[in-house]
Amino acid sequence: MSEIASRLQHHFANEEQQYDAATFGMWVFLVTEIMFFGGLLTAYVVYRTAYPEVFATASHHLNVYLGTFNTIVLIGSSLTMAMAVHSARLNQRQKLAVYLILTMILGSVFLGVKAYEYTHKWHEGLFPGNFFYAGPDAVHQRLFFSVYFALTGLHATHMIIGIGIMLVILRMSMKGRFDETWYTPVEITGLYWHFVDLVWIFLFPLLYLIQRHG
């Protein structure tokens, strides 16, 4: 019991209060992340409202199959992450390791597909820069691709950071830092990863699925 008591910081009344404070702190951070992505989303909304047709044309340069595949992969990684937190809560160290590694693999698959898409866009001249060309209305198509690269780039950066955090969690778990009474860092990492999934749930229809029927 002495070990459990040592994990309770003296400024908290009990374990539950400490846990609630930790998760609330993470949610505070996640709301700042909503604002972080929100600025770019505002740019997206304003430009799409101003040039709806051009945004639809530009969006059709994106591959729906790859986008859908990545959505499935990322939601799958959210499931494995949830299972990792579940395993941590039951103090099943081996399962926790397996689920964390699975989550990292799925995250890497997502990033790999994203890298392939970026390379393809770069070769097609769709990266906003000196050699940008996307047919008619290039000036406004450029706005779409600026927002596309900024949003997906920021999202991919978050995923790379997430995989890094998972490596740290995996190491902590292998050192036996967690048990059923204290697994807060695993839960917090889960919150972060699910948030990254949440962002993609909105980015996918906003970027890939504009007027596909036309």
Partner: peptide
């Protein structure tokens, strides 16, 4: 669905829901 079940808003502290609502 993700927030309620995967992120444990359901069964968690109501303060989280209040805070996220204000963020949204």
């Amino acid at each position: 669905l993700v927030a309620m079940i995967f992120m444990h808003l359901r069964g968690g502290s109501p303060l989280n829901v209040l805070w996220i609502s204000s963020g949204i």
